[in-house]
Simulated assay, not measured.
Amino acid sequence: MSEKGSVQFQGVTKRFGEVVALKPLDLDVQPGTLVTLLGPSGCGKTTTLRLIAGLESATEGRILIGGTDVTNLSATYRRVSMVFQSYALFPHMTVLENVAYGLTVKRVPKAEAHARAEEGLAMVGLAGFGRRLPSELSGGQQQRVAVARAVVLEPEVLLLDEPLSNLDAKLRRRVREEIRQIQQRLGLTAVYVTHDQEEAMAVSDRIIVMKNAEIAQEGAPEDLYERPASAFIADFIGDANLIDVDVTPGGATTAVDLLGRRIELPLATTVRGAGKLVLRPHQMVIRAEPTPYSLPAEVTYAAYLGSQIQYSLETQAGPLFASVAPKAKPFAVGEQVHVGFDPADLRIVPGA
C-alpha cells in the first residue's frame, strides 16, 4: 500500500516548560481514512493535531507524513491543510478569493487559482456563490467554504479542528455528513478533532480516545461502543450506567455478585474482583414485576420525547438512567418498578 497521506508518530512527546501536553505517543493513520481524536478538554487532542500541522514542534520523537520525516519541517513545507474552528475567512474578500487565497500565496497564476477555486466550491455544493462575501452566507455555508479552501491545495492530509462547534445541532448533522462524503469521494486522509462523541462516531473510520495526554483506547466506532476497555471509555462513548459488582470469571461464563445476589452471565472477561457492569440506557427494561435480572427501583424523573421516554431511577445499586420505547401508560414519578436487562447486552470493565 502506498504511504502517501499516511501519518505516523513515533514516541512523540510535547512539553511546554514543566507541563507535559502529550506523553510519548505512537500513532498510525492509514492513507485515505478519517481518524478522529476524541476526548475532554486538555486531553492532548488539539496538541496532537497542531504537531501534525507543524504549528507546534515535538519535544521528542519523530513525525512522518507520507513516509517522509517532517519532524523539523515548518508548516509551510508540509503537505497538510487545516480547517479551523473559527473558519478564518477574510471578510473583505469574496468567497472565490477566500478559496483561492492559499493558491495565490503559492504563486499559482490567478486564472488557474480561480478555476481551481470554482471547482472547489462546486465540490462542496456552493457553485455560483463565488461573488458573495462571507457575511452573506450561513454558518454552514461558511464552513463549507473553509473546507473548499483547504481541499483545493491538494493536501496529503486534511486536518479539522472542532469544525462544527459553531453550528446548531441540526446543521452540525448535515455538515458532518457533507465533510465525510467529500473525504471519501476524494480519498483524503483526514484527522478530525472533536469533544463530541456522537460527531466522532458519525464520521470516523477510527476513533482515538485521549485522556490525560495519552491514548485511552482506539478502534472503530462500534468497537469502542460495544467493547469499552474501561469505565471512562464506556461513559464517554455514549451514555452508560455503571454498576459496581464483584467479578469471578469462569471461561465462557462469568459470575458477578450484585448487592449480595450471585448472577451467572453468558460472557467471558479478564476482569477479576472489583468490576463494573456496563449497561446502556436503551438496553434497560422497566416492568411492574421482577425478573431474574432486575432490581427494584423508584421512578424519580420521566420525560416523554416522542420516540422514547427517558427515566431516572433510584435503586440500591445507585441512580440509573433508562431510555425506552413509549408505552400506552408510562410509569409515573414515584412509582415502584423493576429495572432489568438482557444478560447478553452486558459488558464488564475494571472497577478502578
Rank of each mutant, 00 (worst) to 15 (best):
E3W: 04
E3D: 14
S6N: 08
Q8D: 08
G11K: 08
K14V: 11
K14W: 11
R15V: 06
E18P: 07
V20C: 11
A21E: 07
A21F: 12
A21R: 05
L22H: 13
L27G: 11
V29L: 02
V29T: 11
P31W: 11
G42D: 07
G44E: 03
K45F: 14
T46H: 01
L51W: 14
A53F: 11
E56Y: 13
G61C: 09
R62C: 01
G67M: 04
D69R: 09
N72Q: 15
L73K: 14
A75V: 14
A75N: 09
Y77K: 15
M82R: 02
F84N: 12
S86M: 01
S86I: 03
A88S: 15
F90S: 04
P91A: 11
P91S: 13
M93S: 09
M93Q: 14
V95K: 08
N98H: 13
G102R: 06
L103E: 08
T104V: 13
T104H: 01
A113V: 01
H114T: 10
A117P: 06
L121V: 13
A127E: 14
R131L: 03
L133M: 15
P134Y: 11
E136P: 03
V147L: 15
A150E: 09
V151G: 07
L153E: 01
E154W: 02
E154F: 01
L159Q: 09
L160I: 06
D161V: 12
D168Q: 01
K170D: 02
R172C: 04
V175G: 10
V175F: 06
R176C: 05
E177L: 06
Q181Y: 06
R185T: 15
L186E: 12
T189D: 07
V193K: 03
V193F: 04
H195F: 10
D196V: 10
Q197D: 02
V203P: 03
V203M: 00
D205H: 15
R206D: 07
I207P: 09
M210A: 10
A213V: 04
A216G: 03
Q217Y: 13
G219M: 01
R227W: 09
A229R: 14
F232H: 12
I233T: 08
A234E: 05
D235P: 00
I237D: 06
G238H: 10
N241F: 10
I243T: 10
V245K: 01
P249A: 08
P249S: 09
G250P: 01
T253L: 00
A255N: 07
V256P: 03
R262I: 11
L265E: 13
A268R: 10
R272F: 03
R272W: 01
A274W: 01
G275W: 00
G275H: 01
V278Q: 05
P281Y: 12
M284Y: 00
A288N: 13
P290K: 05
P292G: 07
L295E: 12
P296E: 03
V299A: 05
S307N: 12
Q308D: 13
Q310E: 15
S312E: 14
L313M: 02
L313T: 05
E314S: 15
E314Q: 14
E314I: 02
T315E: 05
A317K: 02
G318N: 08
P319C: 08
P319E: 07
K327G: 14
K327L: 07
E335P: 09
Q336F: 03
G340F: 07
D342H: 10
D342E: 13
P343Y: 12
R347G: 08
